[in-house]
C-alpha cells in the first residue's frame, strides 16, 4: 500500500536517467515518494532502494539525516517553529509553548485528526519576519499568538490551500529543475522551459514572499 505508484515509478526512472550515478537520484526520489504518501513509507524506501541498486538501510540512513524527509507519518501540515536566535529574541519559545497548548501536542507529535505535526526548527532564514514558522515549506511571520491561532484556523479551513500545497516538499525539487529536466528529452522541447517558473503546478519556492500574510 505504501509502494510507489505507477506514475511515480515512471518519473523515478526519468530522474535516475539524469545522473551518471544511479544513487545520485536518491534525494529527489525520496521527495517523490514523500509527495505521494506524505512520508517515506517502508515500502517506498524499499522501492527506492531497488530502483537505485542500494540497500533500504542506506535510503533510510540518508532520509533520516534530513529534517524535511519524514520516515514516520506526519500530519497534513507540518508546522515548524523556528527557535534560532533571531526568532528566540522575538519570542519564539513563547510562541512554541502557545503552539503546543493550542494544538494539544508536544513538539514532534501529530494532532489526533492528522492535520498538524508540530516541529521545532533551526534557523529558517526568515529572520526578517521573526518569529516565524514554516508550514509545508511556506513561511509565515511575524507570528504572535493570535496570528498563530488564525493561521491554524485558516489551514484547517482550507482557505490557504492555494498557497500551501498538501505536501510541499516536492516544490523544491521542481524548482531545482530535477523533475522538469526530463522534458528536454522530447523533440522540440528546448531548455527554455527549464527556467520557467511553476513547472508542474506546485510552483513557488522557499522564501517566496507571496505566502506572507
Amino acid at each position: 500500500m505504501g509502494h510507489l505508484g505507477e506514475e511515480q515509478l515512471e518519473r523515478a526512472r526519468r530522474l535516475i536517467a539524469l545522473y551518471p550515478e544511479r544513487r545520485s537520484a536518491l534525494i529527489p526520489l525520496c521527495h517523490l515518494a514523500q509527495a505521494q504518501h506524505g512520508w517515506l513509507t517502508p515500502e517506498a524506501i524499499e522501492d527506492i532502494a531497488g530502483l537505485l541498486g542500494i540497500t533500504p538501510a542506506e535510503v533510510q540512513g540518508t532520509a533520516s539525516f534530513y529534517d524535511m524527509l519524514h520516515t514516520e507519518p506526519v500530519g497534513r501540515h507540518v508546522v515548524a517553529v523556528c527557535t534560532n536566535i533571531a526568532c528566540m529574541l522575538a519570542g519564539a519559545y513563547e510562541l512554541l509553548e502557545h503552539a503546543e497548548a493550542h494544538l494539544g501536542v508536544h513538539v514532534g507529535q501529530t494532532t489526533e485528526d492528522g492535520e498538524f505535526t508540530l516541529e521545532e526548527s533551526e534557523c529558517l532564514a526568515g529572520c526578517d519576519i521573526a518569529p516565524c514558522a514554516q508550514v509545508n515549506h511556506r513561511f509565515f511571520g511575524p507570528l504572535d499568538e493570535a496570528g498563530f491561532d488564525a493561521l491554524v484556523a485558516e489551514l484547517r479551513a482550507g482557505t490557504l490551500s492555494e498557497v500551501v500545497p498538501p505536501h510541499g516538499v516536492l516544490c523544491r525539487v521542481e524548482r531545482a529543475v530535477g523533475l522538469l529536466a526530463h522534458r528536454q528529452e522530447g523533440p522540440g522541447d528546448g531548455a527554455a522551459e527549464e527556467g520557467g517558473a511553476g513547472g508542474e503546478g506546485l510552483g513557488g519556492g522557499p522564501g517566496g514572499g507571496g505566502a506572507r500574510p
Binding site: 517502508p42 524506501i45 524499499e46 542500494i54 540497500t55 533500504p56 538501510a57 542506506e58 535510503v59 533510510q60 540512513g61 540518508t62 533520516s64 539525516f65
Partner: peptide
C-alpha cells in the same frame, strides 16, 4: 558488499541501524 546497516539520524542522535524489515 551488503550495506544492511547504515547511520540513522544526525548529530548526537546518530546511530547505527539496519532497515526495519532487513
Amino acid at each position: 558488499g551488503e550495506a544492511q546497516i547504515d547511520f540513522l539520524g544526525r548529530g548526537d542522535h546518530i546511530e547505527v541501524a539496519p532497515f526495519t524489515s532487513v
